[in-house]
Design a protein around this nucleic acid. Sequence first.
DNA 1: CCGGTTTCTGTAACCGGTTTCAGGCTCAAG
DNA 2: CTTGAGCCTGAAACCGGTTACAGAAACCGG
Lengths: 328, 328
Amino acid sequence: MASTIRDVARSAGVSIATVSRAMREPSIVSVETLRRVREAADQLDYTPSQLGRQLAERRHGANGIVFPDLSGPYYGEVVVGYEDVASELGRAVLILATHGRPAAREMITRLAGRCDGLVVLGHTVSDDVLLELAERGVPLVTVARPPVTGVDSVAAENHRTAHALASHLAASGARSVVFLGNPDRSPDVTERLAGLRAGADEAGLEVSELRVETMDEQGGAVAAEHLCQQDALPDAIACANDELALGLMTALRERGVVVPRDVLVTGWDDIMAARYAELTTVRQPLRDLGATAARFLDDLIAGRRAEPRIEVLPTELIVRSSSSPRER
Amino acid sequence: MASTIRDVARSAGVSIATVSRAMREPSIVSVETLRRVREAADQLDYTPSQLGRQLAERRHGANGIVFPDLSGPYYGEVVVGYEDVASELGRAVLILATHGRPAAREMITRLAGRCDGLVVLGHTVSDDVLLELAERGVPLVTVARPPVTGVDSVAAENHRTAHALASHLAASGARSVVFLGNPDRSPDVTERLAGLRAGADEAGLEVSELRVETMDEQGGAVAAEHLCQQDALPDAIACANDELALGLMTALRERGVVVPRDVLVTGWDDIMAARYAELTTVRQPLRDLGATAARFLDDLIAGRRAEPRIEVLPTELIVRSSSSPRER
DNA sequence: CCGGTTTCTGTAACCGGTTTCAGGCTCAAG
DNA sequence: CTTGAGCCTGAAACCGGTTACAGAAACCGG
């Protein structure tokens, strides 16, 4: 098999301590010894076992990241931003997709045993699991999830931009708006609704709420059906995410409803398909979320931070033709 | 800190060997001893160190996966399919995005030292790195990449479906087609072009080739500009992927070219945005690619396979209105 | 009652590194 | 010539588990 530090030591005629020193801090070894060790190491093509090293140093040199899925464009971007910074910092990245699996708790606990800290995205696991980990001293950062006491957290701004979205809809001529989403599931969605309400109050816009089962295209289609059965459509429909909005728009079109002539539609996330569907939406700094989480986590692991931090990154309203001003 | 096997042993009044046995194979320990060990372990809330275990067992219980990026929808899906199976098999998943970084070689080597085997997606690193790893005995599976001698490989079918695509374009009234892509970079693209040529020959369709610098929306836009400067547009443009096609269509529209009236356009991949742009494309079994790779890798790690395997998964032509029959 | 199994447990070596500690050597100052 | 400091190096303990091996106790049939 692969050669070990003892093989190299024997071959170079030195002790394993010297080999170890030569590998990690060449300057503290005499030039002659260093040469001999290097030669032996080269010849045996020796690579220090990461496992041995990790065990001795009592650190994994790896971070975990937990997310519900990677299907949408959302989490993928966050993971990339995270991986980028983490690997810049010389740490390996372990991933875990929960897919709403019931065994998520055990899976996360196992994961925690393999890394020096972890980032948890979205609604993957209940708070008590996180608290338990935090109590065990596992460095933890949450992203896009309601802050848990004492745990660092990074999120994207919701309230203010939703407020701006309401103003925009009112300025486009809407007098009523239906918010489509499921605020029970996600605090992000709750905040978006609250922001929308606040902005709507200011602009004299009437808000009602329509809950969906699933926050995907299917859910949008179901909502379209429901809305078309009503006496009249609202002036605008603000969806909690883009997939919902896209599904909704497709289903509306099939029923002969024209956006934005008959109803304004907006989404949230600015996924790629939103551009092609000309959907007004809100762009989130996805990579930045991941990158910030990675830096926070690194600070925690290095013990550079005591006070838990909560960071909210700004979002941006992207206006497209799905919310063009209505002709009176 | 966390308690160790020796703490538990002391507390339960047994040897560490007994604790180890009680944890991993309860049946070989007497009931009374088991009870005592369990009690002590509970009380100290002991969790066996994965590091210690891994070192002793000389296995990591983890697999790596290397990909260029996670931005597009493509690799994300493959990674999900992979993660799903791998975690089903009880293995952790380490990720590495190369982003075309020059240090990719070192990064992969480091990664290889942390896991029992790895999957390499696409054009992330040169063949000699893989050969070197294979020689070192690292179990290896490549996905969507030209097979390397002796290395397992999983890919999606290109030739046959590209052939079908050519037939479809001919049936839609095209007499000439431009293939947009960069066959030098990716063997997949080369195969698609070859398949298209084969089908075109059969159907009496004239094929020419236009190379792009980048295979993204930007590249499509550049190509649109180039094509519009020619005397006449071709009847059809077959793009090597959807992003190219989407960028192309947007830029064409800006120039007043109407798809499919003035020119037929097709993509490849069936990303979400393609549905909304009504783009004819080819769907690949992305999750399956990842899942198959995970199973192959597991077989290799377990030593269940000797002969290198190459698997090609079928793809499917998805016809949408971007290639609707042209009126004469 | 005896020898041979079977069942359970402990001792100790081992996985592959890091690091503390102490000792040998060299060298310059006293 | 002694002494103290500084530089290198090796012995050995340690990180936290697994497991080969051997021995003790219990059990069994003859």
